[in-house]
């Protein structure tokens, strides 16, 4: 590899590397540092233990884990982490239950329909996330569209009062993240050779057996990718629990937002973020491996 060749590669590689390093990686070091400082009623509202070069020793001694102790000892935070995980996991499962049949039906649709169907599934993802969540506010609110339709049909007689409940948060997550599930599942279903299920049918396998022994295992990479694409961002979701959830729907993204914007406790908000990252690091690494092998294959 000659010098010019190396230089050329560097010119391609350096800009994205530097940008993401500076604006994605370095900020986490800053968060880590501030999570280890005291909150202070000043602007900015924290008292950093910022080391001069000769003061590393003092710096280390001054770090304190007080914010992390607060996180562990207050039920609010532990409860918020746990209920975020629970809500995100439930929503991921529901998204799969809804997304899989849709993706499956898309692969069965006539070939000429498929590009149009793909665009139809992707289109909502391109329209504003905030607007799509807002649309559900109008549907779920008392005397809203859902209550009116169900009332007219005589199915319900009283308002369902779904807005500001956990059910509304689940609906919001499933709705917003559905395309993220359908697209990878569709991609992996589409690659399955129909000869495989036909051979199984010839050998006497029932449709149910063919589905669970051939189709589902072969679609697993897509299902996993879809599950991570829903689960990881859903755990830290802020907009959906804020607009559709009630005061009793605890989610950690909302707690972080409140600590930061309402209570102005930046060090505690940073500690909340660091703990959330620690929870997410396992799924993130798995997702990255999946994404990288998927794209190289």
């Amino acid at each position: 590899m000659n010098a010019r060749h190396k230089l050329r590669r560097l010119a391609v590689l350096a800009p994205p590397m530097l940008w993401l390093g500076l604006f994605f990686f370095v900020p986490f070091l800053v968060v880590l540092r501030i999570s280890l400082s005291d909150s202070a009623p000043a602007i900015p509202p924290y008292a950093p233990h910022w080391p001069g070069l000769g003061e590393i020793g003092t710096f280390i001694r001054a770090l304190d884990i007080e914010n992390y102790i607060t996180l562990l000892s207050d039920d609010l935070y532990l409860g918020a982490y746990l209920s975020s995980l629970r809500i995100a996991a439930t929503a991921t499962l529901l998204t799969l239950l809804l997304g899989f049949p849709l993706a499956y039906a898309m692969t069965r649709a006539p070939k000429v329909w498929q590009p149009a169907l793909l665009v139809l599934v992707i289109l909502p993802f391109w329209t504003s996330f905030l607007i799509r969540v807002y649309a559900w506010m109008a549907i779920l609110r008392p005397e809203g569209v859902l209550d009116q339709v169900l009332g007219q049909l005589g199915i319900t007689s009283a308002p369902l009062n779904l807005l500001n409940t956990e059910a509304a948060v689940l609906i919001g997550i499933v709705y917003s993240y559905l395309p993220f599930m359908v697209l990878p599942v569709y991609a992996s279903l589409e690659r399955i050779d129909p000869a495989l299920t036909e051979a199984a049918a010839d050998l006497g396998a029932t449709p149910l057996k063919r589905f669970f022994l051939i189709t589902v295992p072969l679609a697993m990479p897509g299902i996993m990718a879809g599950a991570f694409l829903v689960l990881i961002p859903a755990i830290g979701e802020f907009v959906i629990p804020d607009l559709l959830g009630g005061s009793d729907t605890l989610m950690i993204g909302k707690v972080l937002w409140t600590e930061f914007f309402a209570n102005r406790d930046w060090p505690l908000a940073s500690a909340v973020a660091i703990v959330m990252l620690l929870i997410l690091v396992g799924p993130l690494l798995l997702f990255q491996r999946l994404a990288d092998t998927g794209r190289r294959a």
């Binding site: 800053v30 937002w257 997702f287």
Partner: peptide, 13 residues
């Protein structure tokens, strides 16, 4: 996939 609140907080700091 990273929750936006984390990226946003990190960048602001």
């Amino acid at each position: 996939v990273m929750p936006e609140v984390i990226i946003g907080l990190a960048l602001l700091l």
